[in-house]
Each structure stands twice: as C-alpha cells, then as structure tokens.
Amino acid sequence: MTAAAGCGGDSDSGSGDTIKVGLLASLSGTYKPVGTELRSGFELYLDTHDNKLGGKKVEFSVGDEGDGPPTAVPAATKLIKKDKVDVLTGIVANGSYNAVLPLVEKAKIPLVSSNGRPEVKNVDRLWHTAFLSDEPGAAIAEYVKDEVNGPVYAIGPDYQGGYDELGGFTDAFKKAGGKLANPGGETKWTPFPKTTNFMPYFADIAQSDAKAVYSFYAGKAAIDFVKQYAQSDAADLPLYTAFVTEGSVLPAQGKAAEDIYSVLNYSADLDNEANRKFVADWSAKHDAPPTTYAMASYDAASVLDKAIAAADDKGEVNSETINDAIGRLGKIESPRGSWEFGKTHSPVQKWYLRQVRPDGKQLANVMVQDLATVGD
C-alpha cells in the first residue's frame, strides 16, 4: 500500500516509500557514552531490518544534543526544520525535554524518546521506551530498606535528572519506613557538571551514621564517583545505584566497581528469545555487552516499525497516523521482557537488581533478582 510519508507539520519528505527519522542524542559532553549507545541501538535495529521500518526505507539523521537545552534546541530545530523528519527519537538529558517538546508539538510529529524522562503534562505526541526518571529509585527503595540495617546516605548531581532519580528513591524509601543519614534528612547534591572530586563528600558520609549509600550518576561523573569511592573512608559501605555502572563506564571503573548494586529495567543476561537475538546481533558488532540505553533505543525503532506497518495497513502513513498507531500497539516483546505503554505513554515494566561481578575475564552487571513492576 502506498505511504504518504511526511505529511505531519513542517515535514514534507515527499517519497511515499521513505520515512525520515531524526535521532537527538548527546554525542559530546558529559553524557556522550549514553548518547552513543542510543545511536548504536537504533542503528542496530535498522541494520538487522534491511534499513526499513514498517516496510519503508529510512532516511536517518542524527543531531548532537550535548549536555542539554543550549545545544539540544538548535540540533532539534535542524532535524525538524531542515531535515524535515517525520518522527523524532532519542534524548538523553531530562532538561532537554521541556525545551524540545514545543518544537515537536508545533511540527505535529511524534517523539519516541529512549532515555530517562521527567514528568511531562502533555504527552499527546510523546512516547517513551525507557522509564520515568523517578522509577529506578522507587523500584529498589523497599529492597534497600529491608536489606540495610540502618540509615542510608543519598547523593546525586544537582540538576533535574538528579532530582528525579534521587527523589524517586528517597520518597519511596521514607514511605517504606527508611531513614536518611543525610543532615536534615535531605539528599546531598553535587554541582553538575563541574564536580570531579568526590572525596570531601565521601569524608562526610564516613563521618555520618550511614550503613549504606544510594546514588545516581552517569557518564564521566560515574567513573570519577566509583573510582574515588573505592579509595575513600566510605568504601566499606554497600553502594546501591541507578546507572552508575551501566555501559562503557564499567570497564573504565575497573575493579573499583566490583560488588556495586544497581537497579535497572534491563540486564544483558536476561534469558528470553528477544534478548538472545539482541545480544547476539549486538555482540557481532560491539566488543562490550549491550546496555539499557542501547536496548531502549532498539525498542524505539521496534515501536516505530510496528506503528508504521499498522498505519500503512489502514491506508496512509504520516506523522499523525504513526502517532495514532503507537497508542494501539499493546504488549511489546522486548529484550527486557514484555512491556506496554501506560497512561503517561511510558513503559509498564519489570525492574531488576544487578551486581557487578566477574564474568570470565571481565566484570559485568549480573542479574540477581526481580524487584518490582513499575508504571501506571
């Protein structure tokens, strides 16, 4: 059936057999490792599906989000205005969402984002294949309360993503009856992105009555945090985290990361058919195991693949019909296990506890147990 691609908003891609997809991700700055994984995950899906989504050839454009709105907005503007994409995907930093969404809404194109996302009021054109940023902490909080005999010290970066990630943990932890070791019961915030020396913070933790630490960091900050933690007076305290050991940061952290716990919606050793295929395809192109960042972006491509095919079956493919079709997809089989979009257009999904352990000659985030199913 002939597609009328690019009929949404400012897009005019023209060819009925082509879909224009733009990916916005941090390819420079603090979160370059995360953005690179988002790009690689989406590209893997295209590579293993003949560079087609829903049977349509894909013109794939990439924009550098950098560290947030100052670079994200011009990059998104180019993708929407100049490249005239039919759909946008990606986005690493929470701060980028509210800056980019007005552009998406004006152009009337769907955004299928693929990393942590803050709460957003209008999700009519926003779909999300990763998680809401308060969910990882909420998923592990009760487990930490049950495992740790005493107060827990919460620490994270002083920006929106940190507020969301740590807030999810501290709110659920206190609700479960847990107590924070922080002075005044308030999370310790480290200036972002300039904090590279965490030793003064670790000294404060060691002087507190903390029996464990909960933190969120990613990219280079995660490397600095873990290496210095292992050398600090707080090193004997169990460290529970979101994302601190995920991705290419783990080899850089080395032995300093051993035994660290993390909460995540994905682990490369999950035993299901979709994950076995994903890991095999990924391993054929990459030396390291796949990450949740790559998986969520791979799933974004899978969502678009199914939605574009469904729109085509109904007679017309454009930004509006793709957006409508996404809302009718139901259960999605994924390397993480099956999931579906909830009311907030983000996944209702299972979360896992992992621990950094030796896996052959390398360290890996090894799945320990299921934690909770989170989502609306």
Rank of each mutant, 00 (worst) to 15 (best):
A141Q: 09
G156R: 04
G167Q: 03
I80D: 05
K108A: 15
R125P: 11
V148D: 07
G162H: 05
G116P: 00
I109N: 01
V100E: 05
S114Y: 12
H128D: 15
K106Q: 09
K106A: 11
F131M: 13
A138F: 12
K84N: 14
F173L: 07
V87A: 14
L132N: 08
P118K: 08
Y153Q: 09
G137F: 02
D158E: 11
L103C: 01
K121V: 15
N94V: 08
I109F: 05
V144R: 02
V85E: 14
L88E: 12
L111R: 06
P110I: 11
A172N: 08
E105G: 13
D83M: 11
D171E: 07
D86N: 08
A107G: 12
A138Q: 09
E165C: 13
K179F: 08
A130Q: 07
V87T: 15
P151H: 08
N149S: 12
E147P: 04
G161H: 06
L88C: 15
K82P: 14
K84Q: 15
F173M: 03
A139Q: 04
V152S: 10
F173D: 09
V104K: 07
G95T: 04
K108Y: 14
L101R: 00
E147I: 12
I109G: 04
H128I: 15
A181D: 11
A138I: 13
G178R: 00
G167F: 02
I155D: 09
T170W: 07
E147C: 03
P157S: 06
H128K: 14
K82S: 15
K121I: 14
V112D: 07
F169S: 07
G162R: 04
A93H: 13
G178Q: 07
G156K: 10
S96L: 04
L132P: 03
V123W: 12
D134A: 14
I80V: 11
V85S: 15
G177F: 02
Y97A: 00
A107T: 13
V120N: 11
A138Y: 08
V112R: 05
V152W: 04
F169Y: 06
E165S: 10
D86Y: 07
E142V: 02
Y153T: 05
S114A: 13
G168A: 02
V152N: 01
G178L: 07
E119W: 13
I140S: 00
K145W: 01
P151M: 01
I91R: 01
Y163W: 07
Y159M: 06
G137M: 00
K179P: 04
